[in-house]
């Protein structure tokens, strides 16, 4: 049996009863339209403001094509020893910076943990200091340290260490807060003091976590150490920015490939080490 076709009056009645079934009502549609209009307006303004003209894009793209053409084939150039040295310096900077940050972050982590330091005001302010440090990018630290201690890898090491101490300390504090209390109670029952509780009750539990985090940071720091040299803080970044300045694009391409390969190698190595430490 087939249903009788609905009359216009029926349709109107249903539309009044269930407006949602007939598509969005006028208000929602208007709001939607308004939202899109605002978005398009912003997009248009932003494109205009930042100078996305077809002419500029075309000129830029043809310039980029020239650069890319000059990049092939990549060549180590005459000063390839400097490049390798810069690369080694970058890895060393990342290692030393992470090492210093990890060392300082251990006591700071204990200070920031709620189950070790019970003074809420102290802990709260310490955590906010950590947050503040984290909000400043590594490159900004590097620039500041270059002004403070001069050009060279020392500024890079200090920048990496300062930027990472806060984050590592926060992660350590969280790890310590998640540690089990039973071991601590055991040490207390055996007559251990405050320090003995931390050393033998808490530390053995959180040490693998801390180590794994430090390794993870080392990984990400090899990436950032590679670019800190752009502001003069040593490492391969200095080499690449110098070669870009004199437009030796084939050497630039070589350095980029080298950087990518190094980062991949360190990622692989560190992932294996971490799996061994945590999963073992």
């Amino acid at each position: 049996m087939s249903a009788a076709p609905m009359s216009a009056a029926d349709v109107a009645a249903w539309r009044a009863r269930m407006p949602g079934a007939f598509g969005r009502d006028g208000r929602a549609r208007a709001l939607r339209l308004l939202g899109w209009a605002a978005f398009l307006l912003w997009l248009g303004w932003a494109l205009w403001h930042f100078g996305f003209t077809p002419e500029r894009l075309w000129n830029g793209l043809s310039g980029l094509a020239t650069i890319l053409r000059l990049m092939v084939p990549p060549s180590p150039g005459e000063l390839w020893v400097d490049i390798l040295q810069g690369l080694a310096e970058s890895v060393a900077m990342a290692f030393l910076g992470t090492f210093i940050a990890a060392l300082i972050a251990v006591p700071l982590g204990f200070l920031g943990a709620g189950n070790v330091v019970t003074n809420t005001l102290f802990r709260f302010s310490l955590r906010r200091v950590f947050d503040g440090f984290r909000g400043i990018d590594q490159l900004i630290w590097a620039l500041a340290f270059v002004r403070a201690v001069g050009l060279g890898p020392l500024a890079g090491v200090l920048a990496i260490a300062t930027a990472d101490v806060a984050v590592l300390a926060k992660l350590n504090a969280e790890a310590i807060e998640n540690a089990e209390r039973r071991q601590v109670e055991g040490v207390t029952a055996a007559g251990g003091g405050f320090l003995a509780r931390l050393r033998f009750g808490v530390l053995p539990q959180v040490l693998p976590v801390m180590l794994a985090q430090a390794l993870y940071f080392f990984e990400s720091n090899t990436r950032s150490a590679a670019i800190l040299g752009v502001v003069g803080a040593g490492g391969i970044g200095l080499q690449i920015s110098e070669r870009i300045r004199v437009r030796h694009w084939d050497e630039v391409a070589f350095i980029i490939l080298l950087m990518v390969a190094t980062v991949a190698a360190i990622d692989w190595l560190s992932a294996r080490l971490r799996r061994r430490m945590i999963g073992g």
């Binding site: 930042f50 100078g51 830029g60 310039g63 690449i240 630039v252 990518v260």
Partner: peptide
């Protein structure tokens, strides 16, 4: 894998100094 700053260094040559 190529850091933004390196892209920026190269693109500044191609597109000129500025936000673009």
């Amino acid at each position: 894998t190529v850091p933004e700053i390196v892209f920026a260094l190269i693109l500044v040559w191609a597109f000129g100094v500025g936000p673009l």
